[in-house]
Computed example of a mutant assay.
Amino acid sequence: MTELLEAAIARLKTLPTDKQDAIATLILEELEEEQRWDDSFARSPDLLAKLAAEAMAEHQAGKTQELDPEML
């Protein structure tokens, strides 16, 4: 375990039980979501490569534009 994670857990131990549970739920949900993404990418590496190639082709064909954060 990293020092940062140990420090976070030590601090969490000082919180009331309900807050500990709420934060634990958030962490577990995040870990599950990461696993789902990892599983999705592992099942479809060819699809991801195809999408990347399509995006590059569109960019090279001049069909993309630079993102303007002010327009979001």
Rank of each mutant, 00 (worst) to 15 (best):
A61H: 07
A53I: 03
E58I: 03
E29Q: 15
T2W: 02
A57F: 01
L4C: 05
I23Q: 11
A22V: 03
S44H: 14
E54H: 00
L47F: 02
L51P: 00
R43S: 03
L48F: 03
Q20I: 01
K13N: 09
I9M: 05
K13G: 08
A10N: 09
A57I: 11
M1N: 12
M71V: 15
G62N: 13
E54A: 04
K50T: 09
P45M: 09
A57T: 14
E58W: 07
P69F: 07
E3V: 09
A22L: 14
D68E: 14
A49F: 00
L26R: 09
Q20L: 01
D18I: 12
L26K: 12
Q35V: 06
L5D: 08
Q20W: 07
R43F: 02
T17S: 15
A52C: 05
L48C: 05
D46A: 12
M71Y: 13
L31N: 05
P69H: 04
T25A: 12
D39W: 00
L28G: 01
L26S: 08
L48K: 08
I27S: 03
S44V: 00
A49H: 01
L4R: 12
T25R: 12
A57L: 07
L12M: 14
A49P: 00
L51C: 12
R36T: 03
K19A: 13
E66Y: 06
E54Q: 11
A49I: 04
G62P: 10
F41T: 03
D68C: 05
D68N: 14
E33F: 01
E29N: 11
H59E: 15
T2H: 08
L67S: 13
E33R: 06
M1L: 11
L12C: 08
T25E: 11
E3T: 14
K63C: 03
A52G: 10
K63R: 15
E32Q: 15
E66G: 04
A49E: 13
M56V: 12
A8Q: 12
D21H: 08
L31D: 03
I23T: 04
I23N: 04
D38M: 07
E32W: 00
I27W: 01
T17Y: 13
G62A: 10
A55C: 09
A7R: 14
L28W: 01
E29V: 04
H59F: 10
E3W: 00
F41V: 02
K63G: 11
E58Q: 14
L28Q: 09
W37L: 05
L15F: 09
D18S: 14
T25S: 15
A61S: 07
D39H: 01
R36I: 05
A52E: 14
L4H: 04
D21F: 06
L48A: 13
Q65A: 09
K13H: 04
E70W: 07
Q65L: 06
D46R: 09
T2G: 06
E33M: 02
E54K: 03
D46Q: 14
P16A: 15
P45D: 08
D18T: 15
Q60V: 05
M1P: 11
S40N: 09
D39Y: 01
W37P: 01
F41L: 11
E32F: 02
T14C: 02
D18C: 06
I27L: 07
I23C: 01
E33P: 00
E70G: 07
T17F: 15
P69Y: 13
L51W: 05
L72N: 08
S40Y: 06
E34W: 02
L12K: 12
E66C: 00
E29F: 00
